[in-house]
Design a protein around this nucleic acid. Structure first.
Lengths: 328, 328
DNA sequence: ATTAGCACTTAAGAATTTGTAGTGCTAATT
DNA sequence: AATTAGCACTACAAATTCTTAAGTGCTAAT
């Protein structure tokens, strides 16, 4: 068990370390805890035995361990009130009635990145439950056409398609009409099945060059994974003093280059999830806090990436604020 | 003036330095140039006086100066035949008839980045001369709609629009029909003018809530600058030994974060342009080679970013190869 | 339970040493 | 006149040592 004083000590060490990024020595806390450095050393030693603190070398001050941060987040930290300075800019975004939600989200994450100096990620993806509202095809010339799919939640997907052979405009129109008749209202995760099993045979009956056209549309409809991915303030995280090392920075930049990296983290629950160091699969030296939103079938992921000594309370509060605003 | 032997020496030094990234000493070239190191030192000293070589310190070997690279590119280097290994993968992409040009470009730049270990950039933008083929509006609910604009060259732009007040479906349809009637065939750079001076007054006559609708469409049509920007292999450039320094890497990453950075370089001519070090406005330690394509009104920029000791001949040849393939 | 006191540890920085890869210059050689 | 051998010199780079400062743990006294 951990005494009240020990918990208070842990809090002081973590919060100091978050600010300064330097190991904390026993002497520096004497006044605050109103006892001698020896006493503090004893307590520190106990916290180290519990795995909550670490030393960088035998005679160094203490640094929070991953477990220490976890303890702090779970037991000590209180979700702080959102800062009035912070909220100002964000509020104007969400109050602006003429701004579309997805833009509001991007914009607000930009702001969060810049005020926290962490890296913000928005990964918007269309829910599988979006239903097709309309399929539109615009011929460009005899070989090229554009297929556009619109869902009931306002998601638009378009794809340039190159036909391997020339196909008459009439046939294209016929095909599209057929598809439209059969496909509207179908959730997009069922589209490819439907295409293959129901629509394909029918096209075959009516359309001469059905193979060519079918292939073209099939590829247009199945490639729905064109996620919109936005990252703000990559540089911010690199500026943190713990990453003052060329190889470490290269490593992080490399990881960020794969746009799927954020998906490698499995969600725990529906709230704001915190992955400290090795709890995330991206990098042991990073903390990633992450949440999902799902508003009318448009779903997405928000994440904030910082060093392990992140200002947890502030970051969580901010991310929560955005989530609240999206959900309302 | 520079003698033949001096030019040969310069070439040897540059090509060696491109490979090794280490200063070249006089002794190492004795055998190749068939003379003593003292002679080479004399020649080197002359090349240094000409500003083509530099030393990192008084007793170091020589390193090419920016002027040296420039001389090399302008006078010594011969555009080398494209490597058969390099061309293989690229060829299959451009020979694949069912792949759309813009995808072929992205894909091939990806490959170039990975085989050269430089960073590749594709910045596609729609030419101002694309003409509007169709305007489509899909209502999502009473407050939201999607405006889609398609051009004759296959460019699709869509925008979610939030109406400040509820507008009847009939009115929306009326407005769209009006716009469609007047706007099809107009180059997109003239659209906003047309909207303002010709269409606005007409909408005013027929449509009750013309203000709301007009504002919505105006913002949808003017925001055409949604360039598609792709960068491959950011990490590659950071791995170069000359950037083995945390601050330098941070600096470069920061510069790359602004998607407009590549536009800050002014094109010289229509071919493949080379900007060595301070010749580009991005970073004194980088060389950027850059070219434009314009095929049927779809135009864009390709760039390859490497260290100053870039394999100029190879990089130029590769970029040229892509350009050729796009143009045909 | 707390604390004063002291021996001990380690990293980090400064100063010193040593080695090495190179230079420039001069005088001799071709 | 161009080339080269020879040598004194330079500056970094890597290894070594020295010094300091900030911390610890432990013991014995309070």
């Amino acid at each position: 068990m951990i005494s009240e004083r020990q918990e208070r000590l842990l809090q002081l060490i973590i919060e100091d370390y978050i600010k300064t990024a330097r190991p904390i020595g026993s002497k520096s806390l004497c006044e605050i805890l109103d006892c001698s450095s020896a006493t503090i050393r004893n307590e520190m030693s106990y916290l180290e035995d519990m795995g909550l603190l670490e030393k960088t070398h035998t005679s160094s001050g203490r640094v929070p361990s991953e477990k220490g941060y976890r303890y702090y987040v779970d037991n000590i930290m209180k979700p702080r009130e959102i800062d009035s300075k912070d909220v100002m800019e964000l509020e104007t975004i969400f109050n602006n009635k003429s701004i579309v939600l997805s833009d509001a989200i991007s914009k607000s994450m930009e702001i969060i990145s810049s005020i926290t100096n962490y890296t913000a990620v928005v990964l918007g993806s269309t829910s599988r439950f979006n239903k097709v509202t309309k399929v539109e095809v615009v011929p460009i010339d005899e070989e090229n056409l554009i297929a556009i799919v619109i869902t009931d939640r306002g998601h638009v997907e378009h794809k340039n398609v190159k036909l391997e052979e020339k196909v008459s405009v009439a046939e294209i129109k016929q095909t599209v009409d057929l598809i439209n008749k059969l496909i509207v209202g179908v959730p997009i995760n069922e589209v490819s099945d439907l295409l293959e099993h129901e629509i394909k045979p029918i096209i075959g009956q009516y359309v001469k060059q059905h193979e060519v056209l079918y292939n073209a549309f099939y590829s247009a409809f199945t490639d729905f994974s064109d996620n919109n991915f936005k990252m703000n303030g990559t540089r911010n995280i690199l500026m943190q003093p713990e990453f003052n090392n060329a190889d470490k920075i290269r490593d992080i930049v490399s990881k960020f280059e794969d746009k799927e990296f954020i998906n490698s983290i499995k969600e725990e629950d529906n709230g704001v999830n915190i992955y400290i160091g090795s709890e995330n699969s991206v990098d042991d030296d990073l903390t990633i806090i992450k949440t999902k939103y799902n508003i009318n079938g448009e779903e997405g992921t928000l994440a904030l990436i910082g060093p392990k000594r992140m200002e947890y309370d502030r970051a969580i509060t901010l991310l929560n604020y955005i989530k609240q605003n999206i959900d309302n």
